[in-house]
């Protein structure tokens, strides 16, 4: 995840590559009629600050997604997909409008800034994302597991976390009497 992906000029898009659509200075897309912003980790706090001043006062939801099993997902021009995404939904009560932020988080450095200072309500949601995906949020006041036990090892909602792998101990068939 580096700065050079942001301007959408890399990856050899051809001579007259279509222009990247921008809102709040970051690529924007529309998914099923819903506006989605794609800030980088470095842009996240700035975009959130601008959104807040535009009246998006409530962060309704924050969750992680692990895209390791879905490599070819469609992303707007200028956004390079990483393994993890953090999805933030913010709500503007006055305009009755929602905006979604999708932040790419690479596997080898799964950290991003915490939104706790802007939206204190993200405390539990970021703890959940940490618990389930192992994403760490810088400057979070209490980054600890929330749903799993404190001493749990592994991140359950990652795609490589197996389901139903608890060994079952079978006993031998009862002997004939």
């Amino acid at each position: 995840m580096t700065e050079e992906h942001v301007d959408g000029t890399d990856e050899g898009e051809g001579d007259d590559a279509p222009e990247v659509e921008l809102a709040y200075g970051v690529p924007v897309a529309v998914s099923r009629g819903q506006r989605v912003l794609h800030p980088t980790r470095d842009q996240l706090l700035g975009v959130v600050e601008e959104l807040r001043s535009d009246g998006y006062l409530v962060c309704v939801d924050l969750c992680g997604v692990d895209y390791s099993a879905h490599p070819g997902r469609s992303l707007p021009l200028g956004v390079v997909g990483e393994r993890f995404e953090v999805v933030v939904n913010v709500l503007n009560h006055l305009d009755r409008d929602r905006v979604r932020l999708r932040v790419q988080v690479p596997e080898d450095d799964p950290t991003l800034p915490s939104l706790f200072d802007q939206y204190p309500g993200t405390e539990a949601m970021e703890r959940e994302a940490y618990d389930m995906f192992g994403l760490t949020f810088d400057d979070h006041p209490d980054l600890s597991r929330i749903l799993m036990p404190e001493d749990w090892v592994g991140y359950p909602l990652r795609k490589d976390f197996a389901v139903g792998s608890v060994p079952v101990q079978f006993k031998g068939a009862p002997e004939a009497r």
């Binding site: 309704v60 939801d61 969750c63 997604v65 692990d66 099993a69 879905h70 997902r73 999805v87 939904n89 204190p120 309500g121 405390e123 539990a124 949601m125 959940e128």
Partner: peptide, 27 residues
């Protein structure tokens, strides 16, 4: 009560996240 759903084109949701009102309200 919110649902964030991601589909990869298959017959199962790729990711299905429920925004539980109680979870957030408990804060």
């Amino acid at each position: 009560l919110g649902c964030y759903m991601v589909s990869d084109g298959g017959p199962h949701p790729y990711r299905m996240h429920i925004r539980g009102p109680s979870f957030v309200n408990l804060q």
